[in-house]
């Protein structure tokens, strides 16, 4: 019976389809739950920074607040402005949400815990994260509203600019690993936290983190939705679940970039201290803790820093990060070549 079942799930196309579907659900459901509780954590952290209490009414410690918010979003009416382009208007939030979800297919949660262990994992993640901008720019155009359009233009320019430096950060990590496979990136950092890439590539880790803030439109780079100037930026005209999808996609993207940061620089599922009591903890727990740490820093920055001016943002991207990361790529390549540390392939 057991052998039959294994046979069914590994060879029969129906069995394989069921397995793939189950894997997708295993990633998506916890991801959406983490998005919900990320909003809660965000609000609690900002509240602490501003000496407030934050959500504390719905459920114990306000723990049911995200559920109440989600329910409210679902129950409200979806309004499509009469002068908007209805098809693209509805399509835009879907694009944002779907691109935020499909990227998770290549993220390794533990040794071998990955839906698609493809050879070009990093490139896939980079490609998908560069698609997120379409949801925003289409939303801005389809809304037929000047605030939404200005927000979308800012966002597009910003995301394209910071992707360049993220690309160079990825190249330095690839040089040190010698593979584009994300599992191999993690395995190349085995050993304690002093073996992880954040230490030898510290400037790149900083650039990656700041670019991740810019890429997800978070403070201090939240100009696309800066309330004081553009109402709510590209999602000014959105209501109900169409807005909800933008919101979910935005948070899922934040978690995704934190996961990418954890894989590239913080040793993925590796335990920080490589001996007995710590290595018993399952890798997925360490991975979640690392993501949670990076997300905390996201919220912390949002609670502390004022917003950049737009020309300063562009200057930082093109005149500071791009030359520094380009120089660091050359430096890393030279050190690996002349120090004899080029990874064997």
């Amino acid at each position: 019976m057991g052998a039959d079942l294994i046979h069914f799930f590994t060879t029969n196309w129906l069995g394989q389809a069921i397995v793939i579907l189950a894997q997708c659900l295993l990633v998506t459901v916890p991801l959406l739950l983490s998005v919900a509780y990320m909003t809660y954590a965000d609000r609690k952290i900002w509240a602490s920074i501003q000496l407030r209490r934050g959500p504390n009414v719905v459920g114990p410690f306000g723990l049911l607040q995200p559920m109440a918010d989600g329910l409210k979003l679902v129950l409200k009416e979806t309004i499509v402005p009469s002068s908007a382009n209805a098809v693209l208007f509805i399509l835009a939030p879907m694009i944002t949400f779907i691109t935020a979800l499909i990227a998770w297919a290549v993220v390794p949660f533990d040794d071998g815990w990955v839906i698609a262990d493809i050879n070009v994992g990093i490139l896939y993640l980079f490609a998908i994260s560069s698609l997120g901008v379409y949801g925003i720019i289409i939303a801005g155009w389809a809304s037929n509203s000047k605030y939404a359009f200005l927000g979308a233009l800012r966002s597009a320019a910003q995301m394209v600019s910071y992707e360049v430096s993220i690309g160079f950060v990825l190249v330095t990590v690839l040089l040190c690993v010698g593979s584009l496979n994300l599992s191999k990136v993690v395995l190349a950092q085995s050993g304690g936290f002093w073996n992880w890439f954040w230490l030898p590539l510290l400037p790149m880790f900083v650039i990656f983190f700041v670019s991740a803030l810019a890429e997800t439109n978070r403070t201090p780079f939240d100009l696309p939705m800066s309330e004081a100037e553009l109402v709510a930026g590209f999602h000014t005209e959105y209501s109900s679940m169409t807005f909800g999808l933008f919101f979910l996609g935005e948070y899922a993207n934040m978690i995704l970039l934190s996961a990418l940061g954890a894989v590239l620089f913080l040793g993925g599922w590796m335990s920080p201290i490589p001996f007995a009591p710590f290595t018993w903890v399952p890798g997925v727990v360490w991975f979640a803790l690392k993501i949670a740490f990076l997300l905390f820093v996201f919220s912390w920055t949002k609670g502390t820093l004022p917003r950049y001016r737009y020309d300063q943002l562009m200057r930082l991207g093109w005149k500071v990060f791009l030359p520094v990361s380009l120089g660091w790529v050359v430096l890393t390549a030279a050190v690996l070549q002349f120090g004899g540390w080029v990874p064997k392939s």
């Binding site: 490139l123 490609a127 560069s130 394209v160």
Partner: peptide
């Protein structure tokens, strides 16, 4: 193709 043409 996706990164260069679609993404940029």
């Amino acid at each position: 193709l996706i990164i260069v043409y679609v993404g940029a």
